[in-house]
Design a protein around this nucleic acid. Structure first.
Lengths: 206, 206
DNA sequence: CAAAATTTTTTAGTCTACTAAAAATTTTAC
DNA sequence: GTAAAATTTTTAGTAGACTAAAAAATTTTG
């Protein structure tokens, strides 16, 4: 709050509007779902005009994108913090990774909203969405790859393992279960975890 | 054309309109993309009013759904026909499976349209879409599971392999690469195939 | 062939995202 | 404090999905 020297009044006001808009959108989206919310409603709660929302974020999906970008930053921090003590084996590494991701996503937004996010990332209508998601996937896979290399260095994994290929394979596997988890309201997280464990046990040599 | 006894004139006309609508939609979707096509345009080419299109299919996504349902039926037939001679090992089974799916999807619709399909199946806005997709995934995974059991019966696979778990794991793995393939215009099918091969080699014991 | 039943079309209208331009407001710079 | 610059709001409008009800057309039925 003491940085009035670096940011002009105008910039601070803009920042404030931005923050108010995504805060309003977040609560409304979770409350009623993306499709049932109008830009008008967001604008009203944020105390700006609907045209301003458009000028700031372009489209309704643009607002959602901003929401998600924020959440992504935190997820990567969370992973770095909580994967610190590396699990003893591959299966538990992936299960832990999966659990952290599920926990994180649900504390920020709910399933219906995440569905819209994943949906938008695939549809390609909003190229920024696709880009953001590709980048996030890359960063997440990198976390797994890093951990695999740590395990290799610690002698807990065969030396001729290809960390990059294995990392991506495991990421894709858990991501499929993540999407399945998000796509269905009735799918519980512990069930998804069991399914993933079955996947891993069926594939990996013991 | 000789079944005027079983189908009344009215039913045949309805059938005809239905067929004309999805044929019109198919060509228009591929030509210009879902978002750039209006119901009006579909109706005009099909020779009906726009209200009729709504009455028949509900929403624009509903039209797309009908298109996809048709394609699904054919895909399952194709798989049954072409997987007849079972490949010698797991990796080649999955690679073949993947190739058949990619080939089939691209002969029917193009990537932009398939993106909308996958996107709609996840968004959950159109519950029928999600349902159709869950069912298709189930059937596709069942094909893999069946082939795995054949391999087990032929002694080419360990007897204590859990076919169901392994089948789903492999399906999810190839499906992740399929979605990646569809999501990006620049991703070529042979590159996707190489990626999938790397996934499989990294995971499966040799 | 005429009445009844069915279905489509026409008509009219709502809703909301999104856009462009003019008008009003507010910050900034001197 | 005032002129200039930046930014928001107001205003006005387009487009297209979707809906409801009345009107028109067509098939079916006896």
């Amino acid at each position: 709050m003491e940085r009035s020297q670096t940011l002009s009044l105008r910039e601070r006001q803009k920042e404030g509007r931005r923050a108010r808009i995504i805060a309003a959108a977040k609560s409304l989206f979770v409350e009623a779902g993306l499709d049932n919310i109008t830009i008008e409603a967001i604008a009203e709660i944020a105390g700006v005009s609907s045209v301003t929302v458009h000028n700031y974020y372009g489209t309704k999906s643009g607002v959602l994108l901003a929401l998600v970008a924020e959440s992504d930053r935190e997820l990567l921090e969370t992973l770095d913090r909580n994967l610190a003590a590396p699990p003893p084996d591959l299966v538990n590494l992936v299960l832990r990774f999966f659990t952290l991701i599920c926990d994180h996503t649900l504390t920020h937004l709910d399933k219906p909203v995440w569905r819209q996010v994943i949906s938008a990332s695939i549809s390609g209508t909003e190229p920024r969405f696709s880009k953001l998601y590709r980048e996030l996937d890359h960063r997440l896979a990198s976390v797994l790859i890093r951990e695999i290399e740590n395990m290799k260095a610690a002698g807990r994994l065969d030396d001729d393992t290809n960390s990059i290929h294995l990392g991506w394979a495991l990421f894709n596997l858990q991501n499929a279960r993540f999407i399945e988890f998000i796509a269905s309201d009735s799918k519980h997280q512990d069930q998804a975890l069991r399914d993933l464990r079955n996947d891993l046990n069926a594939l990996l040599p013991r």
